[in-house]
């Protein structure tokens, strides 16, 4: 069952690759958690939203902008887009059954996927990311600059968000709106706009995840579907209502899946995805709150 050849150097490389994967999962999982905390629903369109904004980045770069010039523009578009989506199609259904919200997000996913096909065509294309693919020597282990870059960008983003939530008035209001709607209204917080802001933030997180992963996966309309499943697994593992859980879950899953895929011969590359599904199933059945979650999950 286990693969024979093992070197510490390769193990370190696998860990590095796992951390990089985990960073991407964590970003998208954090987006899912932010929306789940405020809207109680899972946004099945998170992946397509991320891919869509990545396509916008691609178009901007095709029109002469460098990646880092396009980056803030894409984030701004993603932010506004997320807010717009919440205010137009989520707001009418957000007080109804969760399943309705889910199906609306599914409709959104279909719409965005088709739209990407119409505007940019199906099939994949290369995406020139901001980091070079050469490797540098880290303590005797060759690690790709791109992996480091992705992890650093994700880390900075998550840190900024954490600071925002903890130390700003708006961040506090966002947290309050997600925790206790009525009390938030009583102190004058406009809960509706807080929800919209959350969707905007989630869209930004998704955009970053998409732009980080596109150089590796090649950009096509279906690029994020598989990552979305990994993000679901990371969010469930960490606890659907826990931002810390999303980050920790993402990293654990990224490293775990990479190691299992490399060292458990039966799984290999092919069965990594079913392993992620297994994680979701096991966590939801055995410990539905995940590692850090707190919300009560209704059992039959």
């Amino acid at each position: 069952m286990l693969v024979a050849a093992f070197t510490w150097t390769e193990f370190a490389q696998q860990i590095a690759a796992g951390v990089r994967q985990g960073a991407v999962f964590a970003g998208l999982a954090l987006a899912l958690v932010i929306i789940y905390r405020s809207t109680r629903a899972i946004n099945f369109a998170q992946g397509e939203m991320a891919t869509f904004t990545t396509f916008i980045c691609w178009s901007l770069m095709n029109n002469g902008l460098s990646f880092w010039a396009a980056f803030p523009i894409v984030l701004a578009i993603a932010f506004v887009g997320g807010i717009a989506i919440e205010r137009t199609i989520i707001r009418p259904v957000e007080n109804g059954p969760v399943i309705t919200i889910v199906i609306v997000t599914l409709g959104l996913a279909l719409l965005l996927n088709g739209l990407m096909s119409v505007i940019w065509g199906g099939g994949n294309r290369p995406f020139r990311g901001p980091f070079s693919t050469r490797t540098i020597d880290v303590g005797g282990v060759p690690i790709s600059v791109q992996d480091i870059g992705i992890v650093v960008v994700s880390f900075v983003l998550v840190a900024l968000l954490a600071l925002f939530f903890r130390f700003t008035k708006l961040g506090l209001a966002l947290r309050a709106a997600a925790l206790n709607r009525e009390s938030s209204e009583l102190v004058g917080v406009r809960v509706g706009w807080m929800l919209a802001f959350g969707w905007g933030l989630a869209a930004v997180l998704g955009a970053v995840a998409g732009m980080m992963v596109a150089p590796i996966l090649f950009l096509d309309p279906n690029m994020m579907q598989v990552i979305l499943l990994y993000a679901f697994a990371a969010a469930v593992l960490g606890g659907l209502d826990s931002p810390i859980g999303a980050v920790v879950g993402g990293l654990l899953l990224g490293v775990g899946i990479t190691l299992v895929g490399r060292y458990v011969g039966f799984v290999g590359d092919v069965l990594k995805l079913p392993v992620a599904l297994l994680v979701i199933l096991l966590v939801l059945v055995v410990k539905p709150n995940g590692l850090f979650g707190r919300v009560a999950v209704r059992r039959v």
Binding site: A173, A176, L179, S184, V187, G188, V189
Partner: peptide, 19 residues
């Protein structure tokens, strides 16, 4: 009471002054 149980005392007060 309507307090935000998961937030700290200080954060609850801070929210009171939101407007």
């Amino acid at each position: 009471r309507g307090t935000f149980s998961e937030l700290s005392v200080w954060e609850n007060l801070r929210l009171g002054a939101y407007t």
